[in-house]
Design a binder for these strands. Structure first.
Length: 574
DNA sequence: GCCGTTTTCGGCCCGACTGTTTTCAGTCG
């Protein structure tokens, strides 16, 4: 049973309780659901080892009643309480909850008056204008519901951070340049660098919010204005991406930045902390009674609450608030700490640029070293190199290294970890590489036992330096393969094999939660781009973002070391 | 249903926008 399945049931209970007009319980269930969903602890493992007490201890918002329900669900696969509730409500209730502009109250009304229990019936009723005739709903609401259905059918897939970030920057840049805007920033999940994002949030400060609102809602590319008030507006772009803009005056800019960056869980916890300190916090500032005592900068907002500044990537209510209060937040790694890249391809396998071009691009980024790591022979789809060709390739890389000034060029390969756990080249060839990057690209559907033993065997190989993209996932395309990560982390730490955080927008693998967990086992990391062209090297910021979200510091990341230090970190680099 | 540096009982994050209401409920983030 996965954490997400437990969370889904708790969310479902919350929705049904809300429809019965029950106070407070829905939020209690949602809080518990979120904490299970977002946790790095496996709910099953916690229950197996520490029972109900463990559940209460590890998941905030889980108390006696909810821990018992989780226990029942984990041990029997069913939850009687949930089944009983479901009898009273439409079967596809969760489906209806996903329609924008519909919440528990309206769903209950629609179910009672029109016997609507799924999206299909909802659409039919709307088209026949039955909804507009209901008390408290009307023509406009009916239209909104139809638009919501349209969006639902298209599927509101979340977008990769790597794809959303440039779009967000472009829009934010236009807003920043508008004459009545004093300051602006991207907020929300993009500022926190979540791996996927749902919409783009932008904050601006201005003394003339109305003008900014008009400018924003008339930007080229806007398909539809979803909402427009005096300080807040939402638009839908032609590519169906939603952008929310909030405008405040400069004395509130910091408080608004804090509020609008989230996460929701972080903000709720911060506000609860404020209440305990007899303060009030909202998007305009921190208040003691009626007096505003902070708001201009984020730093002073946190300071008034007795906290150190919290980097946006840490704001997920995963312990950062407690750490901040104790002055124990980590000094997380940043892009300018990165001194090189250990994973890059050229046109000798499946890349599109030459070795020289990749090296020049790395040099331009200010790197001290780059490893050229084309694919090994078994990965035929990526034109993996035969032993003979790889030997020539290594020679070529060494020649280029000699004649290139200002950057060290390392000879490496992304080598297949074969199904039996062996590496794809003979030992006599392996010993010629500066860097050996091991990776799995086949038989993704193997059992957990097979995959785990395959990778553990590879981690025992004396030549492997780095384990690339350790879970093999492609966001939205391929689920991570089944593998016992705990065992992988233990072995990698013991044998000093570095775990890769892959910066490719569709991979970002390890993810933040895995990396956080791996550090606890004593693992060290490399942040690589897996670039297949010179422009691919620029994605390093996405890998760094994961590392930051995983609380990793410069010390945890091997490629923050200078070129001179590499001989101490790798067996075959002199 | 959860939780505690005011509390083991009595609170529970907070404000903007929309529609349909003539004073506010529902939804959203």
């Amino acid at each position: 049973m996965k954490n997400s399945e437990v969370a889904d049931i708790l969310y479902g209970i919350a929705d049904m309780l809300e429809m019965q007009n029950i106070q407070f319980k829905p939020n209690a269930y949602r809080k518990a659901a979120r904490s299970v969903e977002e946790s790095s602890h496996d709910v099953n493992e916690i229950y197996q080892s520490k029972g109900k007490a463990g559940l209460k201890d590890k998941f905030s918002g889980v108390g006696n009643a909810i821990s018992e329900k989780i226990e029942e669900f984990l041990t029997t696969g069913k939850l009687r309480y949930y089944e009983e509730l479901k009898k009273k409500f439409p079967k596809h209730i969760s489906e209806l909850m996903e329609i924008s502009s519909l919440g528990p109250k309206r769903i209950k009304l629609l179910h009672e008056k029109l016997k609507i229990s799924n999206v299909k019936q909802l659409e039919a009723a709307a088209r026949k204008h039955k909804i507009a005739k209901l008390a408290t709903l009307g023509k406009k609401t009916e239209e909104e519901i139809l638009k919501g259905i349209e969006m639902f059918k298209r599927g509101q897939e979340r977008m990769f951070l790597g794809h959303a970030l440039p779009i967000a920057l472009e829009i934010e840049n236009k807003i920043k340049k508008f004459k009545d805007v004093e300051a602006s920033s991207i907020c929300g999940s993009i500022r926190r660098r979540k791996e996927t994002i749902g919409d783009i949030d932008i904050l601006a400060s201005s003394a003339k919010p109305d003008k900014v609102m008009s400018f924003f809602t008339k930007l080229p590319g806007v398909k539809r204005v979803l909402a427009k008030g005096s300080t807040k507006a939402s638009v839908l772009l032609k590519n169906d991406l939603q952008i929310d803009l909030r405008v405040v005056e400069s004395s509130s800019y910091g408080a608004a930045l804090q509020y609008f960056t989230g996460s929701k869980e972080h903000n709720i916890a911060v506000r609860e902390l404020a209440i305990r300190k007899k303060l009030k916090i909202n998007e305009y500032g921190v208040y003691k009674g009626k007096k505003k005592i902070a708001g201009k900068t984020e730093k002073e907002v946190y300071k008034k609450l007795g906290m150190d500044y919290v980097e946006p990537e840490l704001r997920e209510n995963r312990g950062e608030i407690e750490a901040s209060l104790k002055r124990k937040l980590p000094n997380i790694v940043s892009c300018n700490n990165i001194k090189g890249d250990f994973h890059a391809h050229t046109k000798f396998s499946d890349g599109s640029d030459s070795i020289e071009e990749m090296v020049a691009a790395a040099k331009k980024l200010g790197y001290e070293y780059i490893a050229i790591t084309d694919h090994s022979k078994s990965l035929r789809v990526a034109h993996g190199l035969s032993e003979q060709k790889m030997l020539e390739h290594i020679k070529k890389i060494k020649v280029i290294d000699k004649k290139t000034k200002g950057i060290k060029v390392l000879a490496g390969s992304e080598i297949e970890i074969l199904p039996n756990g062996e590496l794809d080249y003979s030992d006599s060839l392996l010993k010629k590489f500066d860097i050996v990057v091991g990776a799995v690209h086949s038989r993704f559907k193997s059992s957990k036992e097979e995959m785990t033993s395959r990778i553990l065997t590879a981690l025992e190989n004396p030549y492997i330096d780095i384990l690339a993209h350790p879970t093999g996932r492609r966001i939205g395309k391929r689920e991570p393969y089944e593998v016992d990560l705990k065992k992988v982390f233990e072995k990698a730490a013991k044998n000093k094999v570095y775990l890769e955080i892959n910066s490719h927008p569709e991979r970002t693998d390890l993810n933040d939660i895995n990396a956080f967990e791996a550090k606890k086992h004593g693992c060290k990391f490399v942040i690589d781009t897996d670039a297949h062209s010179t422009s691919g090297l620029d994605y390093i910021n996405l890998g760094v973002a994961i590392a930051r979200r995983a609380w990793l510091t410069q010390k945890d990341i091997v490629n923050t070391s200078s070129a001179k230090q590499l001989s101490k970190l790798f067996k075959r680099i002199k």
